[in-house]
């Protein structure tokens, strides 16, 4: 595909036609905050934290989904951009428990001076009890920023099981199974691909949840080893997260050509047999 030339923060850049402003920003090493974007998922452009100012446009545009066009003039650090990014982070953090988000997210909060407390104390939040309804993973929607990633991973972008969707509307919009039934009554097949893409810790291995509750979760003691799933012949690459000689979580690299980060229930959760040290058969 052809290249187009555009200007970002006063610098001219070449970008491939069909690529996004975000791609171009990344190539220029401009750190752009993103929450709902993932390279393996179709952009939903809902979080709006990545917005940039495009000359001639009435409103800011989402860098993660807006395609580059020749001659675009873009500013990524204007007052308007900083304001909207700050507000998005503040609004989110004022309604959601973002304490398990990556350090990167905290970095953006600092950079834009987000002060979520300033809306006051008596504000609506999504706080609610953790949903623990099976032995494999838990859902803590008080941490959910509604980035739609889990829905996409469960749906068209990977798993195509559609066990979860967005239900409700407005501030009441939330991730839900049909009629909010528990996972065992839902269509869920426990592939854990939703967990794999969740950026907030709202979806979590039960092992991690329990260890956190017990105070034994310690990432500094964990190793991550790449290997291949022991089951079928597809050859999915696994990342085994091991703490004290126990597997505590399984992921797959997003950029792996076989999996794109996605697994099935066996690869994701079927590891117990190497840690039950009794004889069986």
């Amino acid at each position: 595909m052809a290249d187009v030339t555009l200007t970002i923060d006063g610098r001219e850049v070449q970008a491939r036609e069909g690529s996004t402003i975000l791609d171009a920003c990344r190539r220029m090493r401009i750190d752009t905050p993103t929450l709902c974007q993932l390279d393996t998922l179709t952009p939903v452009n809902v979080c709006r934290v990545c917005v940039v100012e495009l000359e001639g446009a009435r409103v800011l545009v989402p860098a993660c989904s807006r395609k580059v066009e020749a001659g675009m003039k873009i500013r990524t650090d204007s007052e308007r951009v900083r304001h909207s990014r700050r507000l998005v982070l503040e609004l989110l953090a004022s309604s959601v428990d973002m304490s398990l988000c990556s350090p990167q997210v905290r970095g953006w909060m600092d950079r834009y001076g987000a002060a979520p407390g300033r809306f006051g104390k008596q504000v609506a939040t999504v706080a609610q009890p953790v949903k623990v309804d099976n032995d494999l993973y838990v859902r803590d929607y008080s941490r959910c920023i509604l980035c739609y990633k889990c829905v996409e991973a469960c749906g068209v972008d990977a798993q195509n099981t559609f066990a979860i969707g967005v239900a409700g509307r407005g501030f009441d919009a939330h991730i839900s199974t049909e009629f909010d039934v528990g996972l065992p009554d839902s269509a869920c097949v426990y592939c854990g691909n939703c967990i794999g893409v969740c950026p907030t810790g709202a979806l979590m291995f039960k092992s991690e949840h329990d260890m956190r509750a017990a105070g034994t979760w310690d990432e500094s003691k964990q190793t991550v080893t790449e290997t291949v799933c022991p089951y079928c012949g597809v050859g999915c690459m696994l990342e085994l997260h091991v703490q004290e000689n126990s597997i505590v979580k399984v992921t797959s690299p997003l950029d792996h050509s076989v999996t794109s980060g996605h697994l099935c229930v066996k690869g994701r959760f079927g590891f117990e047999f190497v840690q039950r040290r009794g004889a069986k058969g």
Binding site: L136, V189, Y231, C232, K266, G270, E272, F273, G281
Partner: peptide, 15 residues
């Protein structure tokens, strides 16, 4: 959620 004779898969609790 299971595999062959279940030697490996019967060790995790699949819902």
């Amino acid at each position: 959620d299971s595999f062959n004779t279940g030697v490996q898969t019967n060790e995790y609790t699949s819902p």
